[in-house]
Computed example of a mutant assay.
Amino acid sequence: MTSFARRAERVQPSAIREFLSLAGDPRITSFAGGYPDPTLFPMADLHAIYDGLLSAGNASALQYTASEGLPELRALVAARLTADGMPCGADDVLITQGGQQGLDLTAKLFVDAGDVIVAERPTFLGALIAFNPCEPDYRSVPMDEEGMDTDALEEVLRTTERVKLVYTVPDFQNPTGRTMSLARRQRLVELAEEYDVVVLEDTPYRELRYEGERLPTIKSLDTTGRVVHLGSFSKILAPGLRLGWALATPEVREKLALLKLAADTQNGTLNMRAAAAYLAGYDIEAHIAGMLPTYRHQRDLMLATMQEHFPAGTTWTRAEGGLFTWVSFPERLDVAAFQRDTLIPRAGIIIVPGAPFFADHPEGNHARMSYSGVPDERLVAGVRSMGELLRQALA
């Protein structure tokens, strides 16, 4: 009998991955994944870049490089972060395997078994998956239209021992799509300083804003170095590159780099060279701007179709960016059971039931729905069919 480490008890399958295994079936309409629209990938540009990198005499593109990440890429990322109000240099940046590795490494660095992580209610499921092997306890803080309720956060910090991290997705939060207001960002930094906790700011959707005012990052408001800022190329370039970054104080960044060295030595040199070549030779800001009308259209189409076909008593969020809406149904509806017994077999539709997004005290009457990457006709037909089945289930 294999005797697993205690931390393995907290390693559970992802509710998202469970359903995404169905997404390859052409009969299935998927509103489940947080996948960017693949029609928006800069395929021709990347094709040209990889052709150049794999040419004769360029073997260094396939060689080892620094564990912290390719120096050129770190410098280019640092320049973009500086332009976003976070002055830094290449030595302040760690290149990670997407944003997910940043979550994993930060938890390993700061969290011992029994320490407390404070998260939004609901929060990103992938973060919980990354944090769980560290055996934390969780406290949830409710959200409203301004994001995390910082008054409730203050009460948690005042009454809870061993809080190490406050985790937040401040821009177009996964799963709700909500954005934290400037006043609450400022208050979060004040509370972190007062109660001596680290803020982990996760920003994979930050640049996918298609309406409203761009807000400063939490890291840009940090004057004492207690905010760890994570970002990713997954939504602005391509997720298959598996490239993200962490920005932190030199002490924290160095320790994160040592943990990364232990985990995987480095990111793939070829993909880092490709990303650096793209940033240096192409206009990524124009590329991002070109994506936004598509996502805005997809959001508007999904919400308008829900408004027409979903039953009374159902509500949803209207994000100013990102890829998601958070749908809340009457409390008597068990969304996981509805999907398993009705939505998949009768309509061929998959969503993500909301319960796994709660760090504690899960609620089963919510769902995360993504509007990205589904053709218009299929999106409308899927939402309409889902509405009909919801009316029957709730009758």
Rank of each mutant, 00 (worst) to 15 (best):
Q266V: 01
D341L: 02
R27N: 08
L40Y: 01
G102S: 01
V228T: 01
R7D: 08
L105C: 03
A15M: 03
R7G: 02
L22K: 05
G268A: 11
G34S: 12
I129E: 09
M369T: 02
L81C: 06
Y278F: 07
T269D: 01
L188I: 00
R318P: 00
L182K: 11
E331N: 00
R384I: 00
Q339C: 05
S55Q: 12
R10H: 11
G225L: 09
G33N: 11
V380Q: 12
L343C: 06
D300R: 15
G212S: 10
A286C: 07
T106P: 05
R162E: 07
Y195L: 01
M302K: 14
E9R: 15
L191Q: 05
F124K: 10
Y278C: 02
I344F: 00
L73W: 03
A127S: 13
V141E: 04
A248F: 05
E251G: 06
Y295T: 01
L200H: 02
H309D: 08
Y64I: 04
E331P: 01
T317G: 10
S60Q: 15
A113N: 14
L301T: 03
D45E: 15
T179Q: 09
L258M: 14
G322R: 14
Y138H: 03
L200T: 06
S372C: 13
I117P: 03
T65G: 12
A359P: 01
L165A: 05
E18D: 13
D149A: 09
Y64S: 13
A381T: 10
N132F: 01
A44W: 06
L125W: 13
V111P: 04
D376P: 08
A276Y: 08
N174V: 07
K108N: 09
R7T: 13
L22W: 08
T223F: 00
D45H: 13
E207C: 05
I351F: 03
Q100V: 04
E377G: 13
T342A: 10
S55A: 15
T224R: 12
L94D: 01
D45Y: 03
D37I: 12
E211I: 09
